[in-house]
Structures are given as C-alpha cells and as structure tokens.
Computed example of a mutant assay.
Amino acid sequence: MFKHKTKVAAANNTSISKRTSIPAPIAQMLHLEVGDSIEWIASMDDNKLTITVEKSE
C-alpha cells in the first residue's frame, strides 16, 4: 500500500474541474511518461469511495 498527500487546485479560471499531481512513486509504478493517458475508475461501496488509476493504452 502507498499513501501520499497532494494539494488540489483549480484546473483553470472558468472550469469546475480540479487538478493535482501524480506522486512520482505512483507514476513510476504505472510506467507513466509525459503525454500518456490514465483512466480513473471510481466505485462506491458502503459509503467508501475506491478509486483505481490505470495507464490507458
């Protein structure tokens, strides 16, 4: 298990989207490079949110 804290920022001045950084150890685990795409998979179970991040091919 890996736990890391990051700050959330506005994506831009006109959007409701948010932005954060991917911690380097997680980027290394996923073998991410600049320009790669990732997929966010979110599920709720018993009021617990689980998010899985996968590198998109």
Score class of each variant (00 low, 15 high):
M1E: 14
T20Q: 03
L30K: 05
W40A: 09
Q28D: 11
V34I: 14
L30A: 05
M29H: 13
K18C: 08
M29Y: 06
A10F: 06
E57R: 04
L30P: 08
F2Q: 08
K18Y: 09
T6E: 03
M29N: 13
L32P: 03
I41L: 08
P23R: 02
E57C: 05
E33S: 14
G35W: 01
T50M: 09
S17W: 05
D36V: 03
L32Q: 03
M44A: 06
P23D: 03
I22T: 01
S56C: 08
Q28A: 07
N13F: 13
I38S: 05
K48D: 09
T50S: 10
T52N: 02
D36L: 02
A24M: 11
Q28S: 12
K3W: 12
S56N: 13
E33A: 09
E33V: 05
E39M: 10
S43Y: 00
A42K: 15
A10D: 15
S15M: 02
D46E: 15
P23I: 06
T6W: 01
E33P: 00
A11E: 09
I51P: 02
T6S: 09
I22C: 05
L32N: 02
K3S: 14
Q28H: 13
I22H: 02
K18D: 10
R19M: 13
L49P: 00
V8D: 00
K48H: 12
K55T: 04
L32E: 02
I16W: 00
S17H: 06
E39N: 11
L49W: 04
T6R: 10
K18N: 07
I22G: 01
R19T: 15
T14E: 08
V8M: 10
K48G: 03
S15R: 00
V34Y: 03
T14Y: 08
A27M: 11
K55A: 03
V34F: 02
S21K: 07
W40Y: 14
T20I: 11
T20G: 01
A11Q: 11
I26T: 04
I22V: 03
N13W: 06
M44K: 05
I16R: 07
A42Y: 06
K18A: 06
L32R: 01
K5W: 10
